[in-house]
Design a protein around this nucleic acid. Structure first.
Lengths: 147, 147
DNA sequence: CGAAATTAGTTTGTGGCACGTACTACTTCG
DNA sequence: CGAAGTAGTACGTGCCACAAACTAATTTCG
């Protein structure tokens, strides 16, 4: 195990490595609260939305048939709730419960802290640059993506 | 669906969003070759290594018991092979087959192209900055990480 | 209005992925 | 040699994702 690899990475490798690093933070933080990454994303999407199953699936990039189980498990844990849509008898609106919102906020705080720690070796200027550059990349999404 | 969200993101959100964007590129590219993200990582780790199951698991952050199935499925598809270790009768060495190496290279090429496309709106200076900053973050890993 | 087409969601079946536990076989230590 | 440790596998559980088939409500349109 090389403890000092430190060879300069190209852009692609650096971004791929960085994405795995961030995903690991998410995964580990989630695991501490018994949440998978998709469950974290689920709670995140529901932070300021109240979508139906289909719309929820499109936000997460998942098929509607995947949503049933995902929402079902989260509902069984009391994190989200299904409500009948007032305008469409077929549809269901998914929203956070207070418990789910609390858990989401707790995870977001931990993730925020840990990622901030990762960027601590950077200067304020570098951090601002990184934020701006990353924001530029995600602001040019070939698909829908949304925030 | 807001088509023009464009509100400035903070550092944490930008990095998380970016990581999902990169992961989606990996996931979609992999799917086109019937590879999951962990299988892509598996092939990537084996590019210049010939580890045992345990070491392989530590590179991927997985338990050894997860490796049996992962390697088994890849082996069944002819992408990797198990060989008995000459020095340890308990151990097996996992390595890429020519087919596996070819598939890995093909995926790497597509991923490289797509991520490069993502960074196309950036200037050369910005791209260099981004590479350097991302490299700095992954070069400060609290765990083992490696390349 | 009422039948046909569409749409939202669930169910079912298949398979990958990850873990913990228990097990086998080999190695190493005393 | 026997005991302890190590490498890997087997098994059971559960989450995640999909496709296809299904139900029920809505919309479309003759």
């Amino acid at each position: 195990m090389r403890t000092e690899p430190a060879q300069p990475l190209n852009t692609v490798d650096a971004l791929v490595q960085l994405s795995f690093l961030i995903q690991r933070v998410l995964s580990e933080t989630g695991a501490e609260h018994d949440l998978s990454i998709v469950q974290i994303r689920l709670l995140g999407v529901l932070r300021d939305r109240r979508p139906g199953m289909l719309e929820l699936g499109s936000h997460l990039g998942l098929d509607k048939s995947s949503m049933t189980g995902l929402v079902g498990r989260a509902e069984k844990r009391g994190l989200v709730q299904r409500s009948p849509s007032p305008h469409d008898g077929r549809a269901v609106l998914v929203s956070l419960t207070p418990l789910g919102r609390q858990l989401m906020q707790r995870c977001a705080a931990v993730v925020g802290r840990r990622i901030t720690e990762l960027t601590e070796p950077l200067t304020a200027t570098q951090r601002a640059q990184l934020t701006q550059l990353a924001g530029a990349l995600v602001g040019t999404p070939p698909l829908d993506a949304d925030g």
